[in-house]
Design a protein around this nucleic acid. Structure first.
Lengths: 231, 231
DNA sequence: CGGCGATTTGATAATGGTCAAGTGCCGTGG
DNA sequence: CCACGGCACTTGACCATTATCAAATCGCCG
């Protein structure tokens, strides 16, 4: 019998640019983001890094550890972050004891997978500026769902290089595309603060529609923002 | 009490180009591929289709249905295929009754997610020919793991248009890149039959390394092929 | 034979990458 | 307090890859 309270975990506060888990590691821990911004990425054969997911407060970037043996990607902090680390075996035990927790975590992994699929679409089929617009819409909505956005503004401390890793563009082109978006009006993005002035215009431009985030299933966290954009 | 034998399912044999589930559907069924080739894809705001996954014998393309309410992608047959359809509620009941089945299915969804992440890398960071090479390596290995390849040859009945949907390239460029790969020697691809003449060369060119497929965890299906390529 | 879809080819254009240099900002140390 | 160094961002010029458009060929089936 395993009480929820008895689950051991470690709290870690990590500086920016620190690897939490690395490709090839044994999958022994799962982590929960308490605050900050993390990225899952892989480095390809030319040394180019491709980010496959960004993680905000409340996300569990590394649930693979529950059922897989080796980690096949890196998870690193983008900003200073604090995370909880839970051993996979303890979490497994918890899932065995409480099926509804298992179901909830499983659902989380399915939603994360859905977001990654949309990233394939974004990276594979949209021109540079649209791609960035889509990413901005997604992050705004996810941060809002986590209670970290208000009035169309949120902290999104991604450097242009990190944006280029996430979008598969060069940094130079990210820079120019951002200028374009700023110039057109729907968005401003300075010093790690993103403001979306015209949500509808930006969503349309980026081809963003939020169903794939399955926000309604995330603990009733469907906010005004989500409601306003969902159509 | 639910006996495995009692799980109701429907067998369906489907012609090529048929949608099994469509974006926006209620997620009420899960499917198992018994044979054939299926694709998960989404259509973007310009009408361009992006494939996010291919499914071969033994895959369960649509396990989202277990825990999510709406389908956010299309699943369609590439070739004539036969699938088993199981209602999500029955499958849920089965998972509740047999935790090891649940764990196994969960693991499957994690592996699928891992493959999608690699697709982000492929589409986001590799040049055209390398991208195709990577896809060919992946499909060869997965088909081999399913017992559907031998001597570096397998059936892979993808048209060049379908390859372009999967790679985010234009059909014209797919055509030229295939010619390049054929000309260089490591591969031939005619009439839906893929032959890889030099596995090592092709893997290296495509930046393919098979860890992300987690084949060792797939019911001991690690074949000669996998062993030969894994390093 | 005729027609249709898939593949191939050629010519041209556009998108995005690369290289190189310059600017602005900030923290450190003299 | 100011000089320096580093880093992110910006800009310009040029180049490469890939897309687009259009037409031709091939194979297959009625």
């Amino acid at each position: 019998m395993l009480a929820v309270d008895a689950i051991p975990y470690q709290l870690r506060t990590l500086a920016r640019g620190v690897e939490v888990v690395s490709e090839g590691d044994d999958a022994t821990v799962c982590i929960v983001v308490l605050n900050g911004l993390l990225a899952t990425s892989k480095v390809n054969e030319f040394g180019k890094r491709q980010t496959t997911a960004l993680h905000v407060k409340g996300d569990m970037p590394d649930l693979m550890g529950l059922h897989l043996d080796k980690v096949d990607h890196d998870v690193r902090t983008i900003t200073q972050s604090t995370v909880a680390r839970i051993s996979s075996t303890h979490l497994s035990a918890l899932c065995a004891e409480y099926p509804r927790i298992a179901a909830s975590l499983w659902r989380t992994t399915l939603i994360d997978a859905s977001i990654v699929r949309e990233w394939v679409v974004n990276v594979g089929s949209r021109p540079a500026a649209n791609r960035l617009a889509h990413l901005m819409c997604e992050m705004m909505m996810r941060l809002d769902a986590a209670g970290l956005a208000s009035d169309g503004t949120c902290a999104l401390e991604l450097s242009q290089m990190e944006l280029s890793d996430a979008t598969g563009l060069s940094t130079v082109h990210v820079n120019r595309s951002l200028q374009y978006l700023r110039g057109e009006g729907p968005l401003s993005f300075v010093n790690g603060v993103l403001t979306i002035h015209d949500q509808q215009a930006l969503s349309q431009f980026g081809g963003f529609s939020p169903e794939y985030l399955h926000l309604a299933l995330r603990k009733g966290r469907l906010h005004r923002y989500a409601a306003a954009t969902s159509n």
